[in-house]
Amino acid sequence: MLDWITNTITAFNYWGIALLMFLENIIPPIPSELIMPLAGFTVTQGKLVFWGVVVAGTVGSLLGALPWYYVSRRLGENRLKQWIDQYGKWLKLNSEDINKSQDWFMKYGAAVVLFGRLIPGIRTFISVPAGLQKMPFIEFIGYSLIGSLCWNLLLTYAGFVLGQNYGLVEKFLGPVAAVVLVGLALFFIVWVVQRKRQ
């Protein structure tokens, strides 16, 4: 996997980063936790420009978020689950993943699209409940843009700082994901309290 990612970035530069991040949002096993830090490392070698890497990764992420959003919106929950149960094994998906993403969306609302982009394992699936709940497209793109930009900026900077040790980024993502989850829980609690006061 690492060799393929490295070769793609080396051969296609920014286009390769955008392509990999597009695929990462559609096919879960391709990890952005390797793509963007590796791209950040290439910046230290003078082969790419930092902000070019971030923009390429973010454009790829946004484009990759759209297929699941549109498919879920068009098919609806029952047909989507039938399709996933039949073909999802190729994408490492099952209907339980759809249920989990639905629960997250129902519990935390539209903001989960923003925070979901920062959490490994959820990032790929967060487009599904947004599509199923027919979240307005502009709102979906706005939240996805902010979340993807923050995530890609963090990973690129980590790869830039760590240099050849960019592989260590994955080890530090556990605490980052925990902080995001706690922040999301606090956001939900504050929201509930404000609603009750009203």
Rank of each mutant, 00 (worst) to 15 (best):
61 S>Q: 01
62 L>Y: 08
63 L>P: 10
63 L>N: 11
63 L>F: 14
63 L>H: 08
64 G>V: 08
64 G>P: 06
64 G>E: 02
64 G>D: 07
65 A>G: 11
66 L>C: 08
66 L>E: 05
68 W>S: 12
69 Y>H: 03
69 Y>L: 05
70 Y>S: 09
70 Y>L: 15
71 V>H: 01
71 V>E: 06
71 V>K: 03
72 S>G: 10
75 L>D: 07
76 G>P: 12
77 E>N: 09
77 E>Q: 12
80 L>Q: 04
81 K>V: 03
82 Q>Y: 02
84 I>T: 06
84 I>P: 00
85 D>M: 10
86 Q>V: 06
87 Y>C: 03
88 G>H: 11
89 K>S: 13
89 K>F: 15
90 W>N: 04
90 W>V: 08
90 W>G: 00
91 L>C: 11
92 K>H: 14
92 K>T: 12
93 L>T: 06
93 L>Q: 06
94 N>G: 14
96 E>C: 05
96 E>N: 13
96 E>R: 12
96 E>I: 09
97 D>F: 09
97 D>G: 03
97 D>E: 09
97 D>V: 08
98 I>K: 03
98 I>Q: 03
99 N>S: 04
99 N>C: 00
100 K>A: 00
100 K>E: 05
100 K>P: 08
103 D>I: 08
104 W>M: 08
106 M>K: 13
108 Y>M: 11
111 A>H: 05
113 V>D: 04
114 L>T: 02
115 F>D: 03
117 R>C: 07
118 L>F: 09
119 I>K: 04
122 I>T: 07
122 I>Q: 03
123 R>F: 02
125 F>N: 07
125 F>Y: 13
126 I>F: 05
126 I>A: 04
127 S>R: 05
128 V>M: 04
128 V>K: 02
128 V>W: 01
129 P>A: 03
130 A>S: 13
131 G>Y: 06
131 G>S: 05
132 L>W: 09
133 Q>Y: 10
133 Q>M: 12
133 Q>N: 12
135 M>Y: 14
135 M>L: 15
135 M>C: 10
136 P>S: 06
137 F>V: 14
137 F>P: 00
138 I>Q: 15
139 E>W: 14
